[in-house]
């Protein structure tokens, strides 16, 4: 079954690197922010050597969190703009995705999933949510960090906004992490974000439109129809 091993490039090195920088920074921000969210986590002040240290760490990771945008703009702007454009391009097939998705999520097999783009509708939704959350979090975060530059009203609203962004982003990330390394049907997509390539079969099954484009461009040969799923 050597044709199964045929792979196709999905993400560039810079994309993979900034994705993981962003992911690590998010996790670190999440953890260092927790005790401010609920005093259930106030024991963490002891672990991190006091609230001042935790605040400093939170600010360092905040910078690390923003950095990827600049890194990718320098190293691989094409992938960045492709991602943004795709995330905000919604077609019928994207909306249909969500009608079928719950079945797939809870372990069923969807045979008639409409062909998806390079980013499928789930990934698009995840991207948009993350972009929105990042804008909210970074914007309000800057106000909280440098209150002397802003008026009282703006400072007061920055807190609930930071809080809302935090809750939303965390919920989205829980879903995203699960779908990419917990859910068996999407497991292979993880390879795309680590090694950078995915099996051609995977591209065909999960990103039909992208697969068609690749075939049209002659970058891959149409896979022989020899294996029926589940057979």
């Amino acid at each position: 079954m050597s044709s199964q091993q045929q792979t196709v490039k999905r993400f560039s090195k810079p994309v993979i690197i900034v994705h993981w920088i962003n992911a690590v920074a998010f996790l670190a921000l999440y953890i260092t922010g927790l005790p401010l969210y609920t005093d259930f986590f106030s024991w963490m002040y002891g672990v991190f050597g006091g609230p001042e240290n935790l605040r400093l760490l939170h600010r360092i990771f905040a910078v690390v969190f923003i950095l990827p945008v600049f890194i990718i703009l320098i190293t691989d702007p094409k992938s960045f703009f492709h991602w943004i454009k795709q995330a905000f391009t919604w077609r019928k097939s994207d909306f249909q995705f969500f009608a079928k998705f719950p079945k797939e999520f809870f372990g069923g097999h969807v045979k008639d999933m409409p062909k998806q783009d390079f980013y499928n509708a789930g990934e698009k939704l995840n991207s948009i949510m993350q972009i929105v959350c990042a804008v909210i979090l970074i914007g309000s975060g800057i106000v909280i960090w440098m209150p002397h530059l802003f008026s009282t009203g703006i400072i007061q609203w920055a807190y609930p906004l930071h809080n809302i962004g935090f809750g939303l982003a965390a919920a989205v990330v829980v879903g995203h992490v699960f779908l990419s390394c917990g859910h068996p049907n999407s497991k292979i997509s993880m390879q795309g974000m680590t090694k950078g390539d995915v099996p051609v079969d995977y591209a065909k099954d999960h990103h039909g439109k992208w697969y068609d484009e690749l075939v049209a461009k002659g970058e891959i040969k149409e896979a022989p129809k020899k294996k029926d799923k589940g057979a």
Partner: peptide, 29 residues
């Protein structure tokens, strides 16, 4: 926010368990 985080986490746990139960022939693995 706390409730939402709870709900998403529950959905994920639910998804994980039901996959373990019903998704025997998952293609990924």
């Amino acid at each position: 926010g706390k409730a939402m985080l709870g709900v998403t986490t529950m959905a994920v746990i639910g998804g994980y368990i039901s996959n373990k139960l019903f998704n025997k022939d998952d293609h990924g693995a």
